[in-house]
Nucleic acid binder design. Structure first.
Length: 457
RNA sequence: GUGGUUGUAGCUCAGUUGGUUAGAGCGCUUGAUUGUGGUUCAAGAGGUCGCCGGUUCGAACCCGGUCUUCCACCCCA
């Protein structure tokens, strides 16, 4: 007897009810992507290792699933490397492919490879799974879906504005009100690092700063110190820890802090423009917030950085993120193509909607009508009726076996079918069928060729 | 990668200081009801106690390892 089957940790099976809910989210996102003029592409689930490695920082490399080479790969490894038992030197010799880690880097690769066929500015969306060799925890999986929309070849800040609207449109459609789109700007962060004299420690500085609302001012400063940022520098950065109030006043404080930083002021200018445009256009359900401590995201962001957090009261990491990257395609040899994009975390949005009970009730309804089966001859008539309904676009099915009526009704009940049809010997003789409304219990007789209009809607 | 946590029936979980035949609720099957689901009543099926090893006369329970679950850190959607 074989062992109980299992699936790798951090992966999931999806049952019909779950797929229905996931599709609800996917269709919403996809619909808005298309309305905003994005075109779909897909890329392979695995790429050459060199395409991915080194793009996400050291930590990222560790989390990339590497694919073992085929054939007798071990014999090709030289003895020194082999006996060293060092994973990092052995790995490149036995793997040259890796599973996609996100959709942005493969997209950059795609743009470079297809640059001559693409009409710029290129707006693309992409919905595919990505893989990370991470330890699973709440809302964190080793296989999960990203839904990305990016624009490359357009420098205007109005792109950023459009993406904020896109977030708003999707979450509004999903009924998820009260999301917060947090925005920051890499240039502002660079400016701060510059002003306090810690340019070379920009990443360490921002990673620590990002934790402010989570671990508090004291611990953040501790972490900065431990990363080699001087007390004087931290002192200078002090205004950041107190920054409160509306966007305008925060920008004012930043302007003061960054008065000597060209790049910092540029970042402020960008944010001002974006905020002002968004204020003019308005948002339906989300709110835009300036957050100078927002620093997540990968090293390739150069301008705006976005992160969306779930409505207050839902303990969930970010449900979306994105930003501007001026030179992502540069790493693949195509310079001066600016890109900006955002990502929706399907799996996390699912968890949030579930927690807030925001899925439409009708979502699990895979069948509108189930026709019961009373035998060979009746079954044939039933199938004829069902076929007619199907051509009219009604989700109709016939119970496949002529088992006890009770059992068939129970099945209909479980499947959550709103209408059941009875077509037995009696009805067959009289050229009619009985339609039962499962919720009210009411039964109505129809002529065999009549299909009630309310099923067609 | 670090620290902790979990695993017993299809599901949610009890299970005493280690002691005979491991329990409950829900679900499932059958019947009450041979043309009517949800409610009710009755009966029944279903368990290598995650896996491997150890201690013991005896292990679901103690010990070691391993896998898994969930949580936190790192990092991230």
């Amino acid at each position: 007897m074989a062992h109980k089957p299992s699936i790798p940790k951090g992966t999931r099976d999806f049952s019909p009810a779950e797929i229905a809910k996931r599709n609800h989210i996917l269709n919403t996102i996809k619909g808005q992507f298309q309305r905003f003029g994005f075109q779909p592409i897909e890329t392979p689930s695995f790429e050459n290792s060199e395409t991915l490695l080194g793009k996400y920082g050291e930590e990222g490399d560790r989390l990339i699933f590497k694919i073992l080479n085929s054939g007798d790969f071990i014999s090709k490894v030289d003895d020194v490397t082999y006996s060293s038992k060092n994973s990092s030197s052995l790995a490149p010799k036995i793997t040259d492919k890796a599973l996609r880690y996100d959709l942005t880097v493969p997209f950059a690769r795609y743009v470079v490879m297809h640059q001559n066929e693409i009409d710029f500015p290129f707006k693309r969306y992409q919905i595919q799974p990505v893989w990370r060799a991470d330890r699973p925890q709440k809302g964190r999986f080793r296989e999960f879906y990203q839904c990305d929309a990016d624009v490359v070849g357009a420098n205007s800040l109005l792109q950023e504005v459009e993406f904020i609207q896109l977030y708003d449109a999707v979450f509004t459609d999903l009924g998820l009100t009260g999301t917060t789109i947090k925005m920051n700007n890499r240039k502002v962060l660079s400016g701060i690092a510059e002003v306090i004299g810690a340019q070379h420690l920009l990443v360490d500085f921002t990673v620590a700063l990002d934790k402010l609302d989570k671990i508090g001012e004291g611990k953040v400063k501790e972490e900065m110190l431990s990363k080699g940022i001087s007390t004087a520098a931290i002192q200078k950065a002090n205004p950041l820890f107190q920054m409160r109030g509306n966007a305008a006043s925060q920008l004012e404080q930043l302007r003061e802090l960054l008065e000597d930083s060209v790049i910092g002021l540029q970042g402020i200018q960008e944010m001002e423009e974006i905020i002002s445009a968004v204020n003019t256009l308005g948002l339906r359900s989300a709110k835009l917030e300036l957050d100078v401590t927002l620093a997540r995201g990968l090293n390739y962001y150069t301008g705006a950085i976005f992160e969306v957090s779930a409505p207050e009261g839902v303990a969930m990491g970010s449900i979306g993120g994105g930003g501007r990257y001026d030179d992502l395609t540069g790493i693949f040899g195509l310079n001066d193509v600016s890109g900006v994009g955002i990502s929706f975390g399907l799996d996390r949005i699912y968890l949030v909607l579930e927690e807030l009970d925001l899925f439409p009730k009708s979502i699990g309804q895979s069948l509108q009508v189930l026709c019961l089966n009373f035998g060979t001859e009746e079954g044939l008539a039933a199938l004829k009726l069902v076929s007619q309904m199907r051509t009219k676009g009604i989700k109709a099915d016939m119970y496949p076996a002529a088992t006890k009526v009770q059992k068939q009704f129970k099945y209909a009940d479980k499947r959550n079918v709103p209408y059941v049809i009875l077509l037995g010997a009696k009805e067959l003789e009289e050229n009619c069928y009985i339609l039962k409304d499962m919720a009210s219990g009411e039964q109505t007789t129809f002529k065999i060729n009549d299909i009630p209009a309310f099923l067609l809607g």
